[in-house]
């Protein structure tokens, strides 16, 4: 495999390109950039169960968003085939902290010791994958948006609700990093 450029793509290129997704979606069809609404659309499609939150017309309202989601998957497949991420150069401080938590293989995009089928029913695997995923789905639905919907779209639009949400993202993220991961990973 050849590498098209050195990794990672620098923040000053990646950030503005991600920011341009916002006007691209608006100009294309006045759609708000966001990913988490797809969970709601998929619930409406698969198991609405008479719940009011899932009674919307998911095909009409969410069709574009699901196409966008499928694109993310396809883009990730192509990117990892054509120009797979190289070994990470992780900050020394984080490296030391993760070693201390018992993670030794710091290659790849996720720690192999945790994010593997074989780890799914170990404590660290179950909490990281199953519980973590559940909290992502519950939290984004409750907050009405994720990183793209609140942190990027909402903050760019100067919405106070999104600022509150982002404060919550970091409160939860810090609690997860400093309180829960040390118990779970060790």
């Amino acid at each position: 495999m050849s590498h098209l450029f050195t990794h990672p793509l620098p923040w000053y290129i990646a950030g503005p390109l991600i920011g341009l997704v916002v006007p691209a979606l608006l100009l294309l069809g006045n759609k708000p950039f966001g990913v988490a609404s797809n969970f709601r659309h998929l619930c409406a499609a698969l198991a609405p169960c008479g719940i009011e939150f899932f009674s919307h017309d998911w095909k009409r309202l969410g069709g574009w968003n699901l196409a966008f989601l499928l694109g993310i998957f396809a883009g990730a497949v192509v990117a990892s085939e054509v120009a797979p991420p190289l070994a990470l150069t992780l900050s020394p401080h984080t490296t030391a902290a993760l070693h201390q938590l018992g993670l030794h293989d710091l290659t790849g995009l996720t720690p192999h010791e945790v994010f593997a089928w074989a780890s799914l029913f170990t404590l660290k695997g179950f909490v990281s994958i199953v519980i973590g995923g559940f909290l992502v789905g519950f939290g984004t639905a409750y907050a009405g948006g994720c990183t793209s919907g609140h942190a990027i779209s909402g903050l760019a639009d100067l919405q106070p609700a999104s600022l509150l949400a982002v404060c919550g993202f970091f409160a939860g993220g810090l609690a997860g990093t400093y309180l829960i991961l040390p118990i779970v990973l060790r």
Partner: peptide, 27 residues
């Protein structure tokens, strides 16, 4: 926003992924 955001933040730290990257990582 605060409560939902905090719950999502916990999940973000545990999975290491917000919704977009969650899907991207599968691929």
């Amino acid at each position: 926003y605060l409560a939902g955001g905090t719950v999502f933040g916990l999940g973000w730290a545990l999975t290491g992924a917000c919704p977009g990257p969650l899907v991207a990582l599968v691929g």
